[in-house]
Design a protein around this nucleic acid. Structure first.
Lengths: 214, 214
DNA sequence: AGCCTCATACGCTATTTGTCCTATATTTTA
DNA sequence: TAAAATATAGGACAAATAGCGTATGAGGCT
């Protein structure tokens, strides 16, 4: 029998969660708290809780901060974020705070149940869109630790042009910024493409960012 | 009916996979290849495959390299790694190569089926131990996610288009990759510009990267 | 049943970009 | 000092992009 605690300030959502959980006889909802602060109080009194379903957007003490505290004070308790937000920022912060899983609110009861079983088993259940974003975080972090920049021998002027190019302005504006003609800008870009072996702005800028040319 | 291709050099494991998949009547295993090279040949001849189940440890061309190629040549094909290795290194490389999911070989048929449905739906299914390691990867290299991403409400399709845009390919190629007309691509991009309040590719991509929309 | 959003598709026009070309003055370097 | 590299400038043409319009079917929500 697994003991679960819910942190959720929205009554309707909390009820919906409890209804879903009550479908499974080996789960027991030990309580429902309206914010992070009362949740922490609850945990202080009561040591039996094994899983917390945590909303992110709560008054007084939000879900991220609360998760950090729960994990600091009771590392054995599993925390599953259950929220309507699937924005990268929230996901990232929740993961850093130590959340074990991250579900969106509209999951089916079975998925919710499986997820609870999964965290108890050392896993990390995530809603599919959340998982996709998590993978993207990993993909993009790598870009910053990229390999020793290759040698492309851009001139100072070319690098300058490339930097301007990366901002999304057009040739005329670059020309104005650098007090040269747009024809010259084009010529420089032609040379840049040649050196980088690319054929358009986007490729040039992405390669430049990857290799720390700009 | 979803068409699936298996890349696996171990006969026993391949058979086991096929047995599991055959339990579901809306899945169709289109073939089984013994290494990455023959898999690529298969895909070249046959355009109907939607999902590839990819082993990591194959002779001639391994699963990571093969995934990179599959994703480069056929971005619409979903790749799920299916392997005995749950080491961080493999997971990390597979994610960078563009894998959509990462399962361990001993998953139950239902989990395998759900995972296939999940990738088709834009998700990122992972075995629980893999997901946990993925989260750890994020935890131990943070800094870049400091500022809150703004809310732009891009649809899934728009995000997909934006990702393609960032690679520097043109509208026609994006259209081919996604099996839609270039007119539709243009319309999506128009909508993206509207939502992001920008007026060209470069601005859109830079804003997207900055706000982790892609 | 009616109202949304999303994804799809097409037409038209103007602007921007990419790839050729040539040409000259200045700066760097061998 | 001579040669090479760099920075400047512009012509011509094709391709790609951006901004506008309209329209339709599918699916979700009220």
């Amino acid at each position: 029998m697994l003991r679960i605690l819910i942190a959720e300030d929205n009554t309707r959502i909390a009820r919906s969660l409890m209804e879903k959980l009550e479908l499974f006889e080996d789960l027991k909802v030990k309580g429902w708290e309206l914010n992070g602060s009362t949740l922490l109080n609850h945990l202080e009194r009561n040591s039996g809780v094994e899983v917390v379903l945590m909303d992110i957007n709560m008054p007084v003490l939000n879900g991220i901060e609360t998760t950090r505290e729960v994990k600091r004070l009771y590392p054995h308790i599993k925390v599953i974020m259950s929220t309507v937000f699937d924005e990268e920022h929230y996901i990232f912060e929740a993961i850093l705070a130590g959340a074990n899983g991250y579900l969106l609110k509209d999951e089916r009861p079975e998925k919710l149940y499986d997820s609870i079983r999964e965290v108890m088993d050392g896993g990390a259940p995530m809603s599919s869109s959340v998982a996709r974003k998590a993978l993207n975080m990993i993909r993009y972090q790598r870009e910053h630790y990229s390999q020793p920049a290759e040698e492309y021998n851009l001139t100072r002027r070319e690098t300058e042009i490339l930097e301007q190019l990366a901002t999304g302005i057009n040739y005329n504006q670059i020309a104005e910024n650098l007090y040269i003609s747009s024809g010259t800008v084009r010529k420089h870009i032609e040379n840049i493409y040649q050196k980088l072996q690319v054929h358009n702005k986007m490729e040039a800028v992405q390669l430049a960012l990857k290799n720390r040319l700009i």
